[in-house]
């Protein structure tokens, strides 16, 4: 009894210590974002601000391009997700519920494409976009991610578990195959779609690699790219607004995660299949 209490106490203590380390950058970010300037630049250890300084947020939101970065983030992430679903869902449906010549070949392509990390394709895509003159555009940020082998794979797994009768019934009811995809298959696949959406949104909201390559125009910067522009400009004396900006940029996903933890964890864990 005493032994188990003791071991409980130790493990709880360790878990709290670990959690403190995990929270450290979050707390420091919050703290700096709300600290008045003089407290930021004091060398005394002071974890929390003495009073809340909202001006850092005002500066970040009005005097910098942070709102623009957020908007770019929404456009790019939304665009990527919309196109991914538009392309992947019909293909997955055909792979799961139709018999056609080349089906095995297409599915083989999907499995092979799962093996290719995006970094590998960056150079040729950059070359192609440069030739086509579409670097520095929303299109350049969205297009390379439209093919999603992972999405096709995920949806196909889901669709192949649905009874074929359901689709035959829809055919008898007069739905075209396209209508079946969007009126029957897709609504039924909403759980899979949610998991995929969470995975896709997190991955592309947080991506730095491609935006760093494909755009040089600060007006097209996605949130991670944008915050680097901001940091590189401020040269060390606007720490408060910089932290406020970092906070603003992280907030959407963190809040979404806190609101829908189970879905988030599932979605991101499913992404592990892709690696």
């Amino acid at each position: 009894m005493i032994r188990s209490f003791f071991s409980r106490a130790v493990s709880t203590l360790l878990l709290f210590a670990g959690a403190a380390v995990i929270l450290l950058p979050f707390v420091w970010m919050l703290s700096l974002a709300f600290k008045p300037r003089d407290e930021i630049f004091s060398s005394r250890v002071q974890l929390l601000p003495s009073r809340l300084e909202w001006n850092n947020f005002v500066v970040a939101l009005t005097e910098t391009d942070v709102p623009l970065f957020l908007w770019n983030g929404f456009v790019v992430v939304g665009g990527i997700l919309a196109f991914q679903i538009l392309f992947a869902v019909p293909c997955s449906y055909a792979l799961a519920q139709r018999r056609f010549r080349g089906r095995t070949f297409v599915f083989g392509l999907v499995l092979a494409a799962l093996l290719v990390p995006f970094h590998v394709t960056a150079i040729p895509i950059f070359l192609g976009f440069a030739k086509a003159g579409i670097l520095n555009s929303y299109g350049a940020l969205i297009l390379p991610f439209v093919p999603t082998a992972f999405g096709i794979f995920l949806f196909r797994q889901f669709f192949s578990q649905l009874p074929p009768d359901l689709f035959d019934a829809a055919r008898v009811d007069g739905l075209s195959e396209t209508a079946i995809v969007w009126r029957i298959a897709f609504p039924l696949a909403l759980p899979a779609a949610t998991a995929f959406a969470i995975f896709s949104i997190t991955a592309h909201w947080n991506d730095l690699f491609w935006p760093l390559i494909a755009t040089t125009d600060p007006h097209l910067a996605t949130p991670p790219r944008g915050i680097l522009y901001f940091r590189d400009q401020e040269s060390g004396d606007d720490v408060g607004p910089l932290m406020a900006a970092a906070l603003i940029i992280t907030a959407p996903l963190v809040i979404a995660f806190l609101l829908a933890q189970r879905k988030f964890t599932q979605g991101l864990a499913a992404g592990g299949l892709k690696g």
Binding site: D165, L166, A169, L188
Partner: peptide, 14 residues
Amino acid sequence: NVAMVFQSYALYPH
């Protein structure tokens, strides 16, 4: 214009 009733009923769950 034929109607079909399936063994599994094949009702649209959503």
